[in-house]
Design a protein around this nucleic acid. Structure first.
Length: 287
DNA sequence: GAATCATATTTCCGAATAGG
DNA sequence: CCTATTCGGAAATATGATTC
């Protein structure tokens, strides 16, 4: 029995590599079940170890047909032989996955990202997440292009509307450099580096939700904070068929590219603007 | 308090395997 | 070689929680 659990440990995928607990369970199940001819880790075996009387419970959870409750999380972590740190991580993972709102997801992700083993496994991912949590990171990266740009945290902070603190600006530069979105030329001046933010699906999705929420908030504030000639907020409300959505998305993508190509190249910008695109449904779909 | 949704258990059935 | 038994997975059903 001791040998069996030791053997199990060597095949177990590392929990901290995952931000999707169902994926973790699937990988764990396949690696313990299919790889070897010894198929000791069956659904039934798991249910026995966890104290479920239904043999297929793990299967239902893996398929997303069942969620886990506080009680069943404990049963799972016992059967998976997780230590107390792993159990806590697993618990937050489950709650993050099952939260309906991005606010809650953020809350649980914040807890996950404090875990030391997670940082060791996915340290950069935390930076990538951070990049999308504050609207001004992207803005500062663009500000570099302005000829009168000064690499002085307080100056940068004062240029932004709304203002941020000098400390935040300094930390922003550090983050952008760490992410490879900014680099220093031979003279030590900051310049943009072409680099895509690549993070796992889960973090990317959560981070983008935060980013857009944050930028829409700026848009809302701009109605009062920015004079009319310096903004253009327009909208249409229109009834269309669901099938038209791909076409609409394509049009919007084209326009984004067009704007970028037409205006993005210009020498000597003197300010940074944000252009938001939003389309969303306001009624239920009738068939 | 009925209706609906989600969770947990029971039942069913095919495949593999051990025993006669 | 056949049959009984066990195992694995999925569907059906019961139970509990939540909503209106």
């Amino acid at each position: 029995m001791i040998l069996l659990s030791q053997y199990m440990d060597t095949l177990k995928p590392s929990l901290y590599e995952y931000l999707d607990y169902r994926q973790y369970l699937r990988d764990l199940y396949t690696s313990l079940n299919k790889k070897e001819e010894r198929r000791f880790f069956s659904l039934r075996y798991f249910s026995r170890a966890a104290g479920f009387s239904s043999p297929n419970y793990l299967k239902l959870v893996m398929d997303g047909a069942r969620n886990l409750t506080q009680k069943s999380i404990r049963k799972f972590s016992r059967a998976l032989k997780l230590d107390s740190e792993e159990t806590e991580f697993f618990e937050n993972l489950v709650y993050m996955n099952q939260s309906p709102s991005t606010e809650e997801k953020n809350h649980y992700y914040a807890r996950l990202s404090q875990s030391q083993p997670y940082l060791e496994a996915k340290g950069l991912e935390k930076d990538q997440y951070e990049y999308f949590t504050q609207w001004y990171y992207a803005v500062i990266r663009e500000m570099i292009l302005m000829p009168h740009f000064r690499e002085n945290p307080q100056w940068i902070a004062d240029q932004l509307v709304p203002k941020i603190t000098g400390r935040e600006a300094a930390q922003a530069i550090e983050l952008l450099v760490r992410l490879g979105l900014l680099r220093r030329d031979p003279q030590g001046r900051l310049e943009q580096a072409e680099r895509n933010i690549t993070s796992g699906e889960i973090v990317r999705h959560l981070a983008l939700c935060n980013f857009h929420r944050s930028m829409m908030q700026r848009a809302q504030e701009s109605i009062d904070a920015i004079p009319g000639e310096e903004r253009d907020i327009s909208a249409i409300t229109i009834a269309i068929h669901t099938a038209k959505m791909p076409e609409l998305k394509k049009k919007m993508a084209e326009f984004r590219k067009e704007v970028h190509a037409l205006l993005g190249d210009e020498k000597g910008p003197n300010a940074v603007y944000q252009i938001n695109f939003q389309v969303f449904r306001l009624t239920k779909i009738s068939s």
